[in-house]
Deep mutational scan, measured.
Amino acid sequence: MDVFMKGLSKAKEGVVAAAEKTKQGVAEAAGKTKEGVLYVGSKTKEGVVHGVATVAEKTKEQVTNVGGAVVTGVTAVAQKTVEGAGSIAAATGFVKKDQLGKNEEGAPQEGILEDMPVDPDNEAYEMPSEEGYQDYEPEA
């Protein structure tokens, strides 16, 4: 019985440690998101679009440190934060509304985080759909 109880105690310690790591990862992701939003706020009209992409990228980098179902929630929060940063930029006159959601080359930025393969159960990952990809044929 002692062996059984000791095993359960060790398992509990492992769960607590994993929860603490997840909590730490979420806190880091939130900190990076805040950094990115402050970065966007300090940019001029020309830099705002690039700044919004930076927020998304920093958040995406930190999301990889967070495991399990938390990833889905962090990704949703990050996307809403990026959308909010863009709205703030438009409201303050840093950028025109028609410039939001495009990178410096004018290509749409939507789907940055949505296409990231995420499995809350950590069982399997699927690649994003290939609808947006084109076949590449090298020139002879």
Rank of each mutant, 00 (worst) to 15 (best):
L100A: 06
K97T: 14
V16D: 01
V82Q: 04
Q79M: 03
A69G: 06
Q134F: 03
K96Q: 14
G73S: 06
D121S: 13
V15Q: 00
V37I: 04
D98L: 11
V63L: 15
A27L: 13
A30I: 07
L100E: 13
G25E: 13
E139K: 12
M5N: 04
E126H: 10
A91N: 09
A76Q: 12
M116D: 15
K45N: 03
A27F: 13
A53W: 04
G31L: 15
A27M: 13
K10S: 03
A76N: 01
T72H: 00
A89F: 06
N103W: 14
E28S: 03
E105I: 11
A17F: 10
V95S: 07
E57R: 04
V15E: 00
E104F: 10
G31K: 14
D119W: 14
L38W: 15
M116A: 15
H50I: 10
G93W: 13
N103H: 15
E105D: 12
L100C: 07
Q109G: 02
K6R: 06
K45M: 15
P128Q: 05
D115I: 04
A76P: 03
G93I: 11
E123W: 01
P138R: 07
A69I: 14
G106H: 10
Y133D: 11
I88Q: 06
P128T: 07
S9T: 03
G86F: 15
K10E: 02
T22K: 00
E137I: 11
K34I: 10
P120Q: 05
K34N: 03
A91V: 04
N103S: 11
E139C: 09
E35G: 06
G67R: 01
A107P: 06
E139M: 13
P128A: 10
K45Y: 12
E61R: 02
K60E: 02
E46K: 11
K60Q: 14
A89Q: 03
K10L: 03
G7R: 12
G101K: 09
K6Y: 08
L100D: 14
V37H: 00
K80A: 06
E105W: 10
G31H: 14
P120I: 13
V16W: 05
E57T: 08
E130L: 04
V3R: 15
G93T: 02
A140I: 04
G51D: 02
Q99D: 09
E126D: 14
A30C: 06
A27G: 05
K58R: 01
V15I: 15
E83T: 09
G111V: 03
A30W: 05
V63K: 00
N65T: 12
V16K: 01
K80V: 04
S87L: 13
A56L: 03
G93L: 03
M5Y: 01
K6N: 08
Y125M: 02
K80R: 05
E139A: 15
E126G: 05
P120G: 06
E130Q: 11
V71R: 10
D135P: 11
T72E: 15
P108G: 11
E123M: 11
P108T: 10
P117V: 13
D2F: 12
V118Y: 06
G7M: 07
G36C: 02
T64E: 02
G36I: 15
T72D: 13
P138Q: 14
S42T: 10
E137L: 07
E57A: 07
Q79L: 15
A29F: 02
M5A: 01
P138I: 02
K6P: 00
E130I: 15
A76I: 06
E35M: 04
Y125T: 12
G47L: 13
V15R: 00
Q62K: 10
V16M: 14
N65C: 12
D121R: 12
F94H: 07
E20N: 12
A69H: 12
E83M: 12
I88L: 09
E35Q: 07
E46A: 08
V55H: 02
M127F: 13
N122H: 09
E61K: 05
V66Q: 03
K34G: 03
V70W: 04
P117K: 05
A89N: 04
G47Q: 00
V49N: 05
G93K: 04
A76G: 13
E126W: 09
I112E: 09
G14C: 15
M5K: 09
A17C: 12
G73D: 06
K97E: 11
L8V: 03
S9H: 05
G31W: 15
E28W: 04
Q99L: 02
A19W: 12
A11T: 07
G67Y: 10
Y133E: 07
V48N: 01
G93D: 09
T81G: 05
N65W: 11
K60Y: 08
V74M: 12
K32P: 01
V48W: 11
V70Q: 02
E104R: 11
G84H: 15
V77Q: 03
E57G: 06
V77H: 05
K80G: 08
K6F: 08
T44R: 02
P117N: 10
V77A: 10
G47F: 10
E130T: 06
E57I: 02
E57C: 07
A19G: 15
V55N: 01
A124M: 04
M116H: 09
A90Y: 09
P138C: 04
G51I: 13
S9C: 05
D121G: 09
N103K: 01
A29D: 01
K96D: 11
A91S: 05
T44L: 05
G101C: 15
P117F: 06
A140W: 12
N65P: 03
E20G: 04
T22H: 02
S129G: 13
K23P: 01
D115Q: 11
D2L: 06
F4A: 01
E137G: 11
T64W: 07
S129F: 13
V70C: 15
D2C: 10
A90I: 02
D119I: 01
G73C: 09
K96M: 15
T92C: 04
G68S: 09
V3F: 14
D135I: 12
K60L: 13
E13D: 01
V95D: 12
G68A: 00
K34P: 01
K102V: 11
V26K: 00
V15G: 03
T75F: 12
K21H: 07
E104Q: 00
K10Y: 08
T44N: 02
T44S: 06
L38E: 06
Q134C: 08
V63S: 02
K32Y: 10
E20L: 01
P138N: 13
Y133V: 12
A91Y: 11
A124E: 10
E137D: 07
